[in-house]
Write a protein that binds this DNA or RNA. Sequence first.
DNA 1: GCGGATAAGTAAAACGTTTGCACAACCAGA
DNA 2: TCTGGTTGTGCAAACGTTTTACTTATCCGC
Lengths: 341, 341
Amino acid sequence: MSVTIKDVAKKAGVSPSTVSRVIAEHPRISAKTSRKVREVMDELGYHPNMMAKSLVSKTTKTIGVILPRPAEELLLNFFFYEFMRGVMAQLTRAGYDLLMAGGNNEREELETVTRLVRGGRIDGLLLLYSRIADPIIAFLHKEKVPFVLIGRSLDYENVLSVDNDNVQAAYDATKHLIAQGQRRIGFVSGPTHLAMTQDRLAGYTKALAEAGLPFKQGWVVEGEFLLESGYRAMASIMSQPEPPTALVVIDDFVAFGVLKGLAELGFRVPQDVAIVSFNNIALAELTMPPITSVDIGTYQLGYTASQMLLSTILQEQIQPRQLIPHRLVIRESSLRTFFPV
Amino acid sequence: MSVTIKDVAKKAGVSPSTVSRVIAEHPRISAKTSRKVREVMDELGYHPNMMAKSLVSKTTKTIGVILPRPAEELLLNFFFYEFMRGVMAQLTRAGYDLLMAGGNNEREELETVTRLVRGGRIDGLLLLYSRIADPIIAFLHKEKVPFVLIGRSLDYENVLSVDNDNVQAAYDATKHLIAQGQRRIGFVSGPTHLAMTQDRLAGYTKALAEAGLPFKQGWVVEGEFLLESGYRAMASIMSQPEPPTALVVIDDFVAFGVLKGLAELGFRVPQDVAIVSFNNIALAELTMPPITSVDIGTYQLGYTASQMLLSTILQEQIQPRQLIPHRLVIRESSLRTFFPV
DNA sequence: GCGGATAAGTAAAACGTTTGCACAACCAGA
DNA sequence: TCTGGTTGTGCAAACGTTTTACTTATCCGC
């Protein structure tokens, strides 16, 4: 049906092996033959069949991304798109494609990974999050499949990973509130089984401790990466006899819920409650008021992770763990001195 | 290296063909043999090599999505993730994977598509937008590759597509403003080479005509899908001797810019200027005031598009064009009777 | 003008499946 | 007992590449 290497060979008057070598730019092909073959390739509109190629070369020029399951879906939300932009930029540059696959539960997810890896469909894998005792990581580790983790592994040493210094980031954010004169600072958290959440919580408590400020259990609310989660957190956290006057929020999207909740309860931001958050998605500057947020370099995260993965696949030497710098972007939501016009 | 069909065959004491037929659930395999072979497969941890399989079957159980280029990135942004959720839900259900690929310019993009299609890497394609005289559509059409378009083709009949009734949607939105007693209604538009923009504009003018309201050229501003676009539009549209008292805005993101622009010019929303918009992204309810927006069922768009694509691949009969219903979500930005507390 | 390197190319096996065809065994009906 | 159909399985070709091992042709120094 489609035009194959044999068709080209026949028309160019050479053998299939020669055509193959022309494509691979094998040194032992004369300039003349090469030119002739390329001419015929153009003429016939030849494109190599990737399946045949992969079958023998055992490489697919494709890397896989396993999508988080429904529960975590919204976690990545806008974050995800920005991350993927970074990934795609790198992959496009290197001539790789990206395969996305999912699964509805942990078993299916592992099954998908097995299928892709053992089925020879991908050369490497990008993991978007890390749970405790993740069976996927265990599997990949055992099979020696190249993979890069966003975040850090809680179970294995030496896993390739790209991360932020989340402890420091949360420390910086909390410090900023303290510098604004805040003394009663709460924390609206994410799922605690994620390394990221744990790290940010650690940075928060560290800053409090250093400043000699109280850590109150009631001022910390666990939740998910959902708008509703932030919204609901306000009901519980702000109904206390002495509610916090400032909040560190795990994620911008959750912060949107926090804004909504506070507005309904009649609290003004930042006059009554100041807010800092994480990720600095594009919408953070569009809310009322705009949200102070830690920019974690989402695009860079994706770009660097892919770069590491490609390097590993090509057997290049790399540093197993890279940190992307963060940056606190200060906007009105955290400024005590802010007075609206 | 990896365990193949031959290994299984040998261990089970049958021929490779038999193993293959067991996997394919061929009717003429005895229950006994089937059981035996499956046992061995489990025991050895066999997983079929997809490359070999695809090579002979000419099918990959993979569908492709071509990412929009930088210029259009923002257009899809908030859309994209929600859309992809719908796509993935459908594909996961059907056991298909998704291949994402990009290109930095029109030439590269077409090259990518050619490579994927001719290289036999995908069974079908999802196109996220439609331009006038799109060479990709021309190519796919010529090659008879199954594909589904989001929106509608301006060049070809009979292209499979999933769309909203954008004319009706804009008609509904405009009608709503008219029902609120508005008489001077403007339109903040997007790029006019997109079918979507043209359709929404048509619905707007239709509603005006029906109500006997004036259509003024100065009340319609063309722009892009950017916040700045809405912001700038206000400067030109509101400086006229008789500016509109209500606006239909092409997209929520643009509407944010409109809000910002109006605030700076000293107009209150909705008291001085009422607003309706499209897409109903999550943030639409978080602005001040919350924005009335037409929900276009983004998730459904993705889900249905994938469904159509899969049906086509399986040669099932389908309706070539499907419309996803829309729904006007009314919030404060459009209510004349709204008085802020 | 010969031996031996070197350059340029070919033939054929291999990659791991699927599938058309052949065939043996069995069974039912006459 | 024969005929003809059905059932279960195996053989080998095919899919479109890459790559190893081999064949020629050419060239060079002596």
